[in-house]
Design a protein around this nucleic acid. Structure first.
Lengths: 157, 157
DNA sequence: GCTAATCTCTCGAACATCGAGACAATCCAC
DNA sequence: GTGGATTGTCTCGATGTTCGAGAGATTAGC
């Protein structure tokens, strides 16, 4: 019985963590006069930049699950406040690549980078073996969640 | 160096987990023709019910961070589709208590209860000791996140 | 070249959220 | 009790975000 209680609490811990992490994004948004979608978009663009690529308008729409009309409005907003730049792709001039401004990059780095630094510092209290266990656990839980999220894997054509 | 890489990946795992869990909520919303806020509200009401209490309109507004005008619209929506009931509190008739309908309770239970069940099943692969480590880790990370989220603890009056 | 496909943008409508303020019920001091 | 302040919810009008439909520009296939 004690075990079940622990596991339920563990599930609650997962949820609490997501809630708090969500609140961090919310706080960043308020701090910079953005809404939730804008932050998600900036994060997506930043992640792409970190991977060495740059997102197109369409790719951003997929990343944040928005239709093209909304992406246009979204990029308009972010461009207006100077967080993003539109750059016509010279190879395929239908495409618009999105690039973060240096100031936005710096602001994001300061906010989320600081959090990341603190998280990694807090990990120092754990042995490599323990961290390995945690990683395995998180991966397993994420897999379960992903399986729930995907539409039922029904029969193939 | 290897350690740092592991830790960075661990931080990414945390983020990925929140993203996927968020997507679960999104999926539930789409499945039931709701928006994100509606789902958050239903979860809040459901949590309260599970604790044996019932939320008032004001408390719900605090829980999902919405002004009273928006809460009214929100509850209107949820009441219109039959997920919520408004119940005037007989002791303080200014208050409106919110109660979930049985169908909404059942739908939520099936969806999120099923996820919870699968999560807990997946936890069977871990020893009590390992689960304890994970719980400690998650608590520590959440604490770090919460600390980031709160406005700087500046000087006292 | 011509046609189909792809990518982004424009336009108008639908909807969520908000601030200000109205309205009703309760609490408190007297 | 009675009057005024407080509390809790709702109404109204304005603002901002999202979407569907479709236009415009560019590229790919033949």
């Amino acid at each position: 019985m004690g075990r079940d209680v622990d596991r339920q609490e563990l599930a609650l811990l997962l949820r609490r963590l997501t809630v708090e992490l969500d609140a961090v994004g919310q706080r960043f948004a308020e701090l910079h006069g953005l809404n939730r979608t804008d932050v998600r978009a900036l994060v997506a663009v930043m992640d792409a930049a970190r991977r060495g690529t740059s997102l197109t308008a369409g790719a951003l729409g997929e990343a944040v699950d928005l239709r093209s009309a909304s992406v246009t409005a979204l990029v308009d907003r972010l461009e207006r406040v100077g967080h993003l730049r539109r750059v016509r792709n010279p190879e395929d001039r239908r495409r618009v690549s999105l690039e973060m401004s240096d100031t936005a990059m710096a602001a994001g780095g300061e906010f989320f980078g600081g959090l990341q630094r603190d998280l990694m510092a807090a990990m120092s209290d754990y042995s490599d073996e323990e961290l390995e266990t945690v990683a395995r656990f998180l991966t397993a839980m994420t897999d379960v969640i992903v399986r729930h999220q995907r539409p039922e894997p029904t029969a193939r054509p």
